[in-house]
Amino acid sequence: MPASTPKALYSPCEIRHLALIVNLENDPTASLLEETQPFDLGKLDVFSFGKQEQCLIGSVDLLYRNSWNEVRTLHFTGSQAVLEALKTILGKMHQDAQPPESVDVFCYSEHLRGLIQTRLQQLVSECINLRLSSTRQESHRFKALRISGQTWGLFFERLSVSVQKLENAVEFYGAISNNKLNGIPIQLNAEQDHLPQIIDGSASEGIIQFFFENADKGFNIYILDELNRVEVYLNCQGCIEELVCDVSRFYASSHERFTYGSGSVNFNLPQFYQIVYTDGEASIIPFNSNSISPLSAPTVPITKKDIMLSHTF
């Protein structure tokens, strides 16, 4: 192996070649023959498989060479081995680094070897791309992962990548808001006085709703989940469009249905609305990039029926 150049030694360390060795020590697929229920390979989720939502990756060994020509190995085992390996890989990549010259996945599973290898290769490549492609203008990106029946959020910041477990919809949207905006979070019931009265007539169970309201110092956000539980952020400073994009990205990258505890929650496409005031009269309009200003869109009140129709189609 050639010696590192002085330029490389003076520069931040970067991963040059990366290999992931999967299920060499712990192979959950070895017991798949005991399953009597047939499954569709096209819909199979290797990270949360079957009724037990078992991750089919039980161990991950990382082998990588860095720009200083050091060779390192790391070992992860257990149901969260994939998540721990991802956190480690992304944590060793600063945002201005060059992408690795090669990323290889070697799978030693008894069953579904090709599928596991392909899905993990896709996941690692996507996360590396998210980490290295963010810019100063777009310094917040998000990736949702469902592993062993638990939902995790990877938040790609300018200086780091953070991981947060997301138990329910309110917790997720709170995490997104905390990462995207500076505000004061308040949790309350829909009956409390902090909630504008106009929202009471528009709240609808079964869908997730965001209501944006201009304030003296920035804007307020009212988040209602499928059960009409409310989280409020007052006097926020930030970009609403980026928040909307991240929430939509979470939906697009997540399962259509999540299970929390003993019950199921239908994870519907979130709805976004703007509260506007005309001559002191409040009304709600569908959110778009121009609706932040009260003068930029017609102030036609929206009804609960309108919300249900927009959700249906």
Rank of each mutant, 00 (worst) to 15 (best):
M1S: 12
K7T: 12
A8V: 01
L9Q: 03
E14G: 04
A19E: 13
I21F: 06
E25T: 13
T29P: 02
T29H: 03
P38G: 10
F39R: 10
F39M: 09
K51H: 11
Q52A: 15
S59F: 05
R65N: 08
S67K: 01
T73C: 10
L74I: 11
T77D: 09
G78C: 10
Q80F: 08
L83A: 03
L90Q: 11
M93E: 11
Q95R: 15
D96I: 15
A97I: 08
D104P: 02
L120Y: 03
E126M: 13
L130A: 10
R131Q: 14
S133C: 15
R136V: 15
R136C: 13
F142V: 08
L145E: 10
W152C: 01
G153D: 01
E157R: 14
R158V: 02
A169L: 04
F172N: 00
G174I: 04
S177I: 15
S177K: 01
A190W: 08
E191I: 15
P196R: 11
I207T: 14
I208F: 02
E213D: 01
D216Q: 14
N220P: 05
Y222C: 07
L227V: 06
V230D: 03
V232D: 03
E241Y: 04
D246F: 01
V247Q: 00
R249C: 06
R249P: 00
F250L: 09
A252I: 11
R257G: 07
T259R: 07
T259K: 08
S264A: 15
V265I: 15
N266K: 14
N268G: 14
N268V: 15
P270D: 13
Q271V: 10
F272S: 06
I275E: 01
V276A: 07
T278A: 11
T278G: 09
G280R: 02
A282S: 13
I285V: 15
N290S: 13
S296I: 09
P298M: 14
T299S: 14
P301D: 08
L309Y: 12
S310D: 14
H311A: 15
F313H: 09
